[in-house]
Design a protein around this nucleic acid. Structure first.
Lengths: 125, 125
DNA sequence: TTGAATGGTTGACATGTGTAGACCGATATG
DNA sequence: CATATCGGTCTACACATGTCAACCATTCAA
């Protein structure tokens, strides 16, 4: 269970690659639009991420195609756990309560959450 | 609604100050034990935090006493919201579901969460 | 009076991250 | 052929953060 902890910029890149693997130039276009990054910015971030093993590249014709090397769920879980302990000392209740206090949550979403909890209860049995 | 976003080190300091306001030396002792920080490390981090307005100091006798300048709930909420959007695009359901998937949650905690949700439902009415 | 404790301040270095300009070779196209 | 585009590398800078050693002035106890 590796300790992945992505920066905001790294998340942007991963988001693209989780949608679909892409060449550097595809990333340049996507992130140029969505993040306003210059080509060299994209390139640098991508290179550093490859060095770290967050993504990997495969030569495909003239261009390299980049793939995520970690699953989105894994990265999301790692970030979330890290925050859970740093901020809430591991208390899920506190975290969820904060989450709920800070928004007007829709009736539908409440139902969904309750369903999630019920599911958790069953598994426990 | 200021954008507070504390680093891991800053959290350690704030944790101490949220327990109770403290002098630099009290922080040095506490963080020396809990974090293994040298006196100068504590001092530097504290100074930078004061510059940023995260904490404020009041002369009290020979020593300055440091106080948190932001509430814990505010800081916690800011971090949580930031993660919620960066990682889950704002979906509370996804976030909670990840949280639940990653642990065996106790029956009591489940009850608590359910109570939280029920409360949310009432408010909505 | 001298040495330890109190209560600091300063300057410095390493690493990670955000950001990009300059440059370069290959290829496609007018 | 010239030149634009594709696909990419390299170097560099700034700022935040983690980390500390060295230094200093004041006070208090032995």
């Amino acid at each position: 269970m590796e300790r992945v902890n992505l920066s905001a910029g790294e998340w942007r890149v991963m988001e693209e690659l989780w949608k679909a693997p892409a060449t550097l130039m595809e990333l340049v276009h996507a992130l140029g639009e969505s993040a306003g990054w210059a080509k060299s910015t994209v390139s640098t971030v991508v290179r550093r991420m490859e060095d770290k093993g967050l993504i990997r590249a495969e030569q495909e014709g003239r261009a390299k195609v980049f793939y995520p090397a970690i699953a989105r769920e894994k990265a999301a879980a790692a970030e979330t756990e890290s925050l859970l302990f740093r901020v809430y000392h591991g208390s899920v209740g506190l975290m969820v309560s904060t989450l709920l206090q800070n928004r007007r949550i829709s009736r539908e979403e409440l139902k969904e959450l309750q369903a999630l909890l019920d599911q958790g209860e069953e598994e426990q049995t």
